[in-house]
């Protein structure tokens, strides 16, 4: 039984700082139902350090498929689809609002260096404001900076929509297959699950 339930709105936390201090809430304590993991805290930091677009919420799960996915609704739908096809997501992410190349790069590195993750699935709904070419640049940058070949690490790249012609050219240069909009979200998730084994 609960006596009181309070809903702390993350968006308005900065206004309530004195009250939160008085109650003993640390700055990064978001009072989720469990303590945030180091992976989640690092994801939140990456998001906070660059106002261009978002990659969060970031959550850690115990699976083996690294998810570099978007956007708000696409990530929910994709996570459901991966699970439906028997896949075990290693994380949750939500690329949206057209993140910078640098933000996509840092997210890629965060997910790919998570213990137990060998490959990532880069997937999204058909994008509008987020740009497929900028996501492709960031993902490839992140992978090459870790010393890997993009083609070895990307299970699938399904980000159709805005600037998809440029994204396809970027991926072609690095030997990664580009899935166009005729590959459904469910089919993309199925292929990723199948490839990870």
């Amino acid at each position: 039984m609960l006596d009181v339930e309070a809903d702390l709105e993350i968006e308005a936390r900065h206004r309530q700082r004195p009250m939160l201090d008085e109650l003993g809430f640390a700055k990064d304590d978001l009072r989720q139902v469990r303590e945030p993991t180091e992976f989640e805290l690092e994801g939140a930091r990456i998001d906070a350090e660059d106002p261009r677009g978002i990659i969060s919420p970031i959550a850690e799960f115990d699976g083996n498929i690294g998810l570099v996915i978007g956007a708000g609704g696409g990530s929910l739908t994709l996570t459901d689809a991966v699970r439906k096809h028997g896949g075990r997501p290693a994380n949750y992410a939500a690329i949206g609002g057209n993140p910078s190349v640098d933000k996509a790069r840092r997210l890629t590195k965060l997910v790919l260096t998570k213990p137990g993750v060998d490959k990532i699935a880069v997937m999204s709904n058909v994008v509008s404001n987020t740009r497929a070419d900028l996501v492709a640049r960031g993902v490839i940058k992140g992978i090459t900076e870790l010393g890997f070949e993009p083609a070895d690490k990307i299970l699938i790249f399904r980000v159709p929509g805005a600037w998809e012609a440029d994204a396809a050219k970027i991926l072609e240069k690095y030997g990664v297959e580009y899935c166009d909009r005729t590959v459904s979200i469910s089919e993309a998730a199925r292929r990723a699950v199948e490839k990870v084994g």
């Binding site: 956007a71 609704g73 696409g74 949206g96 709904n125 994008v127 509008s128 404001n129 987020t130 909009r181």
Partner: peptide, 17 residues
């Protein structure tokens, strides 16, 4: 009508296809 901007385009794409 969609609560997600991205999924608006995804669904419209499916309807268009």
């Amino acid at each position: 009508m969609s609560r997600s901007g991205g999924m608006t385009t995804e669904i419209c794409n499916a309807l268009t296809l």
